[in-house]
Design a protein around this nucleic acid. Structure first.
Lengths: 217, 217
DNA sequence: GTCTATAGCGGGATAGAC
DNA sequence: GTCTATCCCGCTATAGAC
């Protein structure tokens, strides 16, 4: 609790509130209160609310992106690289619980003036690299070739992303009152890894059964 | 465009705006404009903004829940039931493009006064039923027994949920400018089904390789 | 760098005419 | 049922003292 520089204090407070309530519902005064500073001071450090928000996203996404991309460029064999990715994603979300919420809001905001471009750029870069790893795995014969690399990347990321974004609901479904306990998070991540590895390496689903029949009742 | 009753007009407009911008950023006046009605009229049909929002969610979630649960109680064999679920989820999101965004916001809003309880209840009921189907599949020997049913349910739903919630980003990643074209959506859904079926039925990932090594660089 | 005070605007909600 | 006019509050942002 030793005195921190005000910029950090403000960014921290803003991040917490933006994540919890979103941009519009968060007031400058509330941020000031949360940071223990006078709200007028925010305008000394940041030109306006919009750009404060942007600064929050940049700080959080910048570190996130750096961490994640490290895990993919480590030069591991494809399957291990993907498992590391899941682990890395989980650790990221766990270390920065605000991140999933911030992301969810940005995604939901259609073409918000906000920082979507930034996110898109980061995500796209990451996405490219995941696809490349998958393709490498297919070329090396470790991953089923009938999987579309881009779709597969989405399948992998989804399992992590949704789990953390939907925390409040997920928590309830798993039978907890408040937060999902760390041990359960860990167990889920291991599940997701096993689930995904089976899908990546497993045999195609038995084409028996008449699976394609009616879709409408 | 034939004249509709004002309630529907208002609900439609409100749903669109709430989904696009969220609760706080959406003004009563904007809803009136979007609906082509005087904004004061909203207070004739709804007591306040909060309860208008609630009405929007109830309308959308009510039908959604009904449709989805039908697909699970159809008494199909487990694996087919799960595939139907994925299909149903996709159709739902496709038919009501506002739904994923509304959901994402509700999940992100920590303990918003809004309608989380409603969502939690619906989701929990559905979740229970998915788990039951998975357990049935395991008992019948169609699904690997080393998978935790609850985690597996999350893995399945995630792949659909995130794809639709993150549409704007997903679209960019797949190389499209605006919306993901229907054909691609269909292809992804088929992918997700295949991916998931392989994971559900496939062999455990080859325990060869030394997969558990370093987690930190 | 941090605070007080306040301008100025826009939003939610109401009163009441038609 | 639908519209006009308006109240009142709270928010962003600024001016300026310390």
């Amino acid at each position: 609790m030793a005195t921190q520089d005000s910029t950090t204090l403000i960014l921290d407070a803003a991040e917490a509130l933006f994540a919890r309530q979103g941009f519009a519902a968060t007031t400058i005064k509330a941020i000031g209160r949360e940071a223990g500073l006078n709200s007028a001071l925010l305008y000394y450090y940041f030109p306006d609310k919009e750009r404060l928000y942007h600064a929050v996203l940049e700080r959080r996404l910048g570190t996130a992106n750096r961490e994640l991309s490290q895990r993919l460029t480590a030069g591991l064999p494809p399957l291990e690289a993907l498992e590391q990715l899941l682990q890395g994603y989980a650790r990221l979300m766990h270390d920065a619980p605000n991140l999933p919420r911030l992301l969810a809001r940005e995604f939901a905001d259609h073409q918000a003036a906000h920082a979507l471009p930034l996110i898109r750029e980061l995500a796209a870069g990451l996405f490219q690299r995941i696809c490349d790893v998958i393709r490498a795995g297919q070329a090396a014969g470790h991953i089923r070739k009938d999987l579309d690399p881009r779709f597969t990347a989405i399948s992998l990321v989804s399992q992590m992303a949704w789990f953390f974004v939907a925390q409040p609901a997920v928590s309830r479904m798993l039978g907890y009152e408040g937060i999902v306990p760390p041990a359960t998070v860990k167990a889920y991540i291991e599940h997701a890894a096993r689930f995904s590895m089976a899908a990546l390496t497993g045999l195609p689903a038995p084409p028996a059964k008449s699976t394609r029949k009616r879709v409408r009742t």
